[in-house]
C-alpha cells in the first residue's frame, strides 16, 4: 500500500506542482507580488474540501456524469486563466489581470488534484492496518512531487529574465493544450461529445501507464489513442497560445529595452 500511495499522490502533486512552479517563476521574473499565492492556496484548499465532501452527490448530478462536467469545467477554467495570463504579459499596466489569472489557474489546479488526494486518504480513515502506510506513502509522494516543483522553479529563474519568460511561456502553452485535451476526454467519457475512432495508437512507442507516459500526460496531456476532435482542439490551442505568447514576448522585449 505504501508504494501504491506514493505513486498515486506523486502523480497528483506532480501535475499541480508543474503549473504552480511555472506561475511562481513568472511572478519572480515579472517582479509581481507573491502574496496572491496564499489566497490561491486557501481558495483551492477550501474548494477541494467542499468538492471532496460532496463528491457522492456531485457524481450523480446530470444523470451520473456530474464529476466529469465539474472536472472538465476546472480544466476549461485553467485554460482560460492561462490564456489571460499569457496575453496580459504584453501590457505593463495589467499586473492585476496577471495576478487574478494566476489565482484562477492555481486554484483550479489545486481543486482538481486536491480533491482526489483528500478522497483517497479519507477512505482509509478507520482502517488501522492500512492507514499508516497510506499516510506514509502519501507524505513521501507529496514530498517528491513538491521537490520536483521546487527544482523546476529554480531551473526557470536560473535563466536571464527573457529566457526564463520564454521557457515559462513555452511550458504554459503545452499545459494549456493538455487542459483542453483532458477536458474533451472527460466530456467524451460523459457522452456529451460523441466518441470517435482514434486517429492513431502510439501505445507501442510510449505507454500511458509508463513513467514517460505519465510525465508526458502532465506536461502535454499525452493520449496514446486521441480522437480527431482532441487532436484538432489541441492543435488550435497550441496555435492560439503560441500567437499570444509571441506577442507578449515581443512586448516584454520592447519594455526591457526602454
Amino acid at each position: 500500500m505504501l508504494i501504491n500511495s506514493f505513486i498515486i499522490i506523486l502523480r497528483e502533486v506532480f501535475e499541480a506542482a508543474l503549473i504552480v512552479s511555472v506561475l511562481l517563476a513568472l511572478c519572480q521574473i515579472l517582479q509581481l507580488p507573491r502574496r496572491y499565492f496564499l489566497l490561491s492556496f486557501m481558495l483551492g484548499s477550501i474548494l477541494a474540501i467542499v468538492y471532496a465532501i460532496n463528491i457522492s452527490s456531485i457524481s450523480m448530478l446530470f444523470e451520473g456524469v456530474g464529476q466529469e462536467i465539474i472536472n472538465a469545467s476546472l480544466h476549461f477554467t485553467s485554460f482560460i486563466c492561462l490564456q489571460i495570463l499569457i496575453f496580459s504579459i504584453a501590457s505593463s499596466s495589467s499586473s492585476k489581470m496577471i495576478l487574478w489569472a494566476i489565482v484562477g489557474s492555481f486554484s483550479a489546479a489545486f481543486v482538481r488534484e486536491g480533491f482526489e488526494i483528500i478522497i483517497y486518504i479519507l477512505g482509509f480513515v478507520g482502517i488501522e492496518h492500512l492507514f499508516d502506510s497510506v499516510v506514509a506513502g502519501s507524505f513521501i509522494g507529496a514530498g517528491v512531487g513538491f521537490s520536483i516543483g521546487v527544482f523546476f522553479y529554480y531551473f526557470i529563474v536560473s535563466f536571464n529574465p527573457l529566457n526564463g519568460l520564454r521557457l515559462g511561456l513555452f511550458v504554459l502553452i503545452l499545459v494549456s493544450g493538455a487542459m483542453i485535451i483532458q477536458a474533451l476526454q472527460l466530456l467524451i467519457q460523459a457522452d456529451i461529445i460523441i466518441s470517435q475512432v482514434p486517429l492513431w495508437n502510439s501505445s507501442g512507442w510510449v505507454r500511458e501507464s509508463s513513467v514517460t507516459g505519465q510525465i508526458l500526460y502532465a506536461l502535454l496531456g499525452y493520449e496514446s489513442t486521441p480522437s480527431p476532435i482532441q487532436v484538432i482542439a489541441y492543435s488550435a490551442s497550441l496555435l492560439f497560445s503560441s500567437t499570444l505568447a509571441i506577442k507578449s514576448l515581443n512586448a516584454y522585449k520592447m519594455r526591457i529595452k526602454e
Binding site: S59, V65, Q67, G123
Partner: peptide
C-alpha cells in the same frame, strides 16, 4: 473516474 465509498458512478 473516482467512485467514492458507498456511492455509484456512470
Amino acid at each position: 473516474k473516482v467512485i467514492p465509498g458507498h456511492s455509484k458512478g456512470v
